[in-house]
Design a protein around this nucleic acid. Structure first.
Lengths: 214, 214
DNA sequence: TTCCTGTGTTTTGTATTCAGAATTCATAGT
DNA sequence: ACTATGAATTCTGAATACAAAACACAGGAA
C-alpha cells in the first residue's frame, strides 16, 4: 500500500474537519494551539498552517493577537453560503457535458431513491448526500470550479450537525434529488439546473429554523 | 496615523500580490523561501503562512517536498477562472438591492466613460477596471460572496500583465461597462446581469490569444 | 464601591534550529 | 558515450525557542 506522503497541514486540516462533523467543537469557541497540537501529536507549526487554510475557507476566523476560533454560526452566514454553493453547483451543472449527464442520470436516480432511511446515522446521511452532489458535478471540466465548490462547502460543515433528528427534511431532499435526476434523464439540462437551485434554496429554508438566532 | 497592526502574513501576501501585478515573478517559477524571506526582511514562518494562503487562492501551487511556485498560466485555467468570476459577479449583481443599483448607476456610467485612455499606464488601467467592478458589486449584502470574488480574482492577477499593449480591447471593455451601467439606470436588472456575464465572456475571448499556448 | 494601574501568567506571533527529502554533480561501470 | 549509483548540497517540512501581545487579577486611589 502507498504510504501517506501528504504534508501534515493537509492531514491536520482533514482531521479537524472530521472532528467538526462529529460535533467536537462548539461554534464560537477559541482554539488553544498548544493544547490542540499536543492532542493531535504534532507541533504548532503545521497546526497553524492548517488553521490558516481553514480560516481562508471561512471555517475559522482569526483576530490579531487572539488566535483562531470556530466562526460562530448564524442564519445570515448560512444563507450566504447556500446562495453561493447553489450558484456554483448550478454553474457546474450548466457547463457539464450533456451526454455525460445523461449517462450518469440513472445512477443519480438510484442514489436518490436509496437515500438512507431514518434509521441511518447522521454521518451516513451526510456522506450519502455529499456523494450525490459530487457525482452530479463530476462531469464539469472546470477543475477550478470543482475545487472551489469543495472549499466553500467546508464552511457549510459547521452547520451539518444541526440537521440531526427530524426526518421529513430528508424525504424532501431525496424527492428533489430524484427530480433533478429525472430531468437529466429526459435531457432537459436547463430545467435540471433550476431544480438544483431550488433544491439548495429549499434545503436552506428547511435548515433555517434550526439555527440559533445567535 | 494608525500604525499597521495586521499579522505579517497578510502584509506579505499583499506585497507578493503587488509584485505579481508588476510582473516581478515569472509564472511557473519556483519560490526560494529563504531568499524571498531575506528579501522581504521577515522570517520563513510568516512567509510560508502567506504562501499557504496564496496557494489556497490558487495563485500558487505546492508540491510535497518541492515547495511553492507560481502556478503556470494556461488558457484552460484562465477560461475557468473567468467563468467562475462571471458567475459570481452575476450572482452578486442579481442579489443586489435594485434601488441601490439605480443610485450608483450614474457613477458607474461616469467611471466607464472616464476609462483611462491609451496613454495611461498599465496598473492605472487595471486599478480603474477593478474599481468599476468593485463598485458594481458593492450593493450585494452577501459578504461571503464579496470575499470569495476578491479571493478568486487574486488568481486572475497572474494574467493581468498580459493585457498590456493593445488598445482596442480597452475600448470594448469601456463600451461594455457603459452598457451595463445604462441597463441599470433603466432599471432592467436582469439584462444588466446578462450584460455583465457577456462582458466577462468577451473580455476572456479578447485575452485568450495573448496567453501562451502553454 | 468602582475604576484605574501595574504585575504576573497565558497564549499567540515570529524567529531559529533541526531533520529529512529532492536535486545536483561527479564517478564508475557497461 | 551513456547510464546508473552515490555522495554532497540545497531546500523544504516540522519542531523548538524566543518575543510580544492579550488576559487575569490584585492592590490602591478617587
Amino acid at each position: 500500500m502507498p504510504i501517506d506522503r501528504r504534508p501534515l497541514r493537509e492531514q491536520i486540516r482533514e482531521e479537524l474537519l472530521s472532528r467538526l462533523d462529529r460535533g467536537h467543537f462548539a461554534a464560537g469557541t477559541d482554539i488553544n494551539e498548544v493544547a490542540l497540537a499536543a492532542e493531535l501529536g504534532v507541533s504548532r507549526t503545521p497546526l497553524r498552517e492548517a488553521l490558516i487554510t481553514l480560516a481562508g475557507e471561512g471555517v475559522l476566523e482569526s483576530n490579531q493577537g487572539r488566535g483562531f476560533r470556530f466562526a460562530p454560526v448564524s442564519r445570515k452566514e448560512f444563507r450566504e453560503l447556500c446562495e453561493i454553493v447553489a450558484g456554483l453547483e448550478a454553474l457546474a451543472l450548466d457547463r457539464s457535458d450533456p451526454a455525460y449527464l445523461r449517462e450518469i442520470a440513472p445512477e443519480l436516480l438510484r442514489l436518490a431513491r436509496d437515500f438512507p432511511d431514518r434509521i441511518a446515522e447522521q454521518h451516513v446521511i451526510e456522506r450519502h448526500d455529499d456523494e450525490w452532489h459530487d457525482l452530479l458535478v463530476s462531469g464539469c471540466r472546470n477543475e477550478r470550479l470543482i475545487d472551489l465548490i469543495t472549499s466553500v462547502k467546508a464552511g457549510l460543515r459547521r452547520y451539518a450537525h444541526l440537521l440531526a433528528g427530524d426526518d421529513t427534511p430528508l424525504e424532501r431532499e431525496a424527492a428533489e434529488h430524484c427530480r433533478v435526476a429525472e430531468l437529466l434523464m429526459s435531457g432537459d439540462q436547463a430545467a435540471a439546473v433550476q431544480a438544483l437551485r431550488d433544491n439548495w434554496v429549499n434545503g436552506m429554508e428547511r435548515m433555517m429554523s434550526r439555527i440559533p438566532s445567535t
